[in-house]
Design a protein around this nucleic acid. Structure first.
Lengths: 240, 240
DNA sequence: GCTCCAATCTGGTATAGACCAGATTATGAA
DNA sequence: TTCATAATCTGGTCTATACCAGATTGGAGC
């Protein structure tokens, strides 16, 4: 007997969950179409969609625009306090990374950026906009704002790998301290578009503001992640 | 002229946003009912609800079960790496904190807890379950698992204030290092119920696992936050 | 084989209506 | 005034249907 007063779409969520387990659907595998599911579970498409949205919120499945529903891969572990490049820790965890540079320009510091970096409004600043994949699923887009005073030749460097590694190797730069901000938000506008998800899809915002030993602004990193893509994992206070 | 191919519910989202600005609705103020809004904006309740859900995902408004939609207060800034108690930093930011202890028991270490703490399965462990408010809005629920070896008299202490402060003052305990995990999830079951939100509401999970100077397990903290309630803010590498 | 285009399949959006259950408010009796 | 209760208001759930637009597929023509 199912509990009374338990809405149909929540019952469906549970039945879908166990159905997925029974079928042993694995990472990135596709579910049957909504119409097929609504027949199979004797309900309407609207209600099935409600149940699917629940599973999406829980991170079990994700949608690919007008293509269908798929099983969400395991979360990527991520430590924003470390300087290790994306490619390296993705590989370390047994996944296949890929980075696309969507734009890379030398532009002028806008007011909001001036406010948090101390740069003058209109001062030259590099802006790199990239999309990162894990196993061919786009997990995040990232805006990098880099102080050109420290690395004048950045535009001619490749930005499809780690910017940090490049800053360290080519320009001998490393941050002395940084301010990190993290909060959940809805992906919208440019970011939603670049990730191929619907407006309002749940996401996680991570911002890193780095300064060098002399307290000068080095780099600002603004990352927009899919909500189900990562698990932040930090160790603090260890002296090894 | 509005952009073509822009769905009605997204247009509504924008119109509602500006309408809220025009009306100068402030923190915790109530919106008109869905039926009223759907008339006012010449659409159906379903579509209005879609627009409201967008604004909810974006953190502008939140819902209170069968009572209505309200303006979301400003996010609370939160640094999980510091030992400052909830009450203190809520107050520091000009808000009014409140904590309810929902349960407080001495129980036996379950397998999953044994795995991450090193305690023996079945070993005694304190479990405190609390709900935290800011300005009378419940923002998170929190499970604390505390090693009784270090603070035998915990059950008789008040847990409506900072557990950390108590551990420090009464038992002279402070953590040497800790592992922090953070990721977005959907609030469900006990946590959703305790916060009075619908199953599947977006949330943020924060876990802190603390050990003392000798590497012994001190405390495990599992927090379930509303997604729109906080902004994590950490400074790393500063030597002041 | 290949390319191109049409048919088809998919999820995305939108309407109109209905009923439910919890929360609030109004009412009226004590 | 107090307190129980009834009416009402609110969001929550659900059905049935329709059409759209992007993605995929299948086949015709080369």
């Amino acid at each position: 007997m199912s509990r009374i007063d338990y809405p149909v779409y929540l019952q469906l969520r549970d039945r879908l969950w166990t159905w997925i387990e029974d079928e042993q659907l694995g990472s990135q595998q596709r579910l049957p179409s909504e119409r097929e599911l609504s027949e199979r579970f004797h309900t309407t498409r609207v209600t099935i969609r409600q149940a699917l949205s629940q599973l999406e919120a829980e991170g079990l499945i994700f949608r690919s625009n007008r293509r269908g529903w798929y099983i969400t891969p395991e979360r990527l572990r991520y430590d924003p306090s470390r300087d290790v490049g994306f490619n390296r820790y993705v590989t370390e965890q047994g996944f296949r990374p890929r980075t696309e540079t969507l734009s890379k320009v030398l532009t002028e510091t806008p007011p909001w950026l001036s406010e948090i970096t101390g740069l003058a409004i209109g001062a030259p600043i590099y802006h790199v906009f990239r999309r990162r994949y894990v196993d061919e699923r786009g997990l995040l887009v990232e805006h990098n704002y880099i102080n050109p005073a420290h690395c004048p030749g950045l535009l001619s460097e490749s930005t499809d790998v780690s910017i940090w590694q490049m800053l360290r190797d080519q320009y001998d730069l490393c941050p002395e301290h940084r301010d990190i901000e993290i909060y959940p938000l809805a992906l919208k506008g440019l970011e939603a578009e670049a990730l191929g998800v619907n407006q309002g899809t749940a996401g996680l915002y991570i911002q890193r503001l780095s300064f060098d030993q002399r307290g000068e602004f080095l780099e600002l990193d603004r990352e927009y992640w899919l909500h189900d893509a990562l698990k932040i994992s930090v160790r603090i206070g260890d002296r090894h």
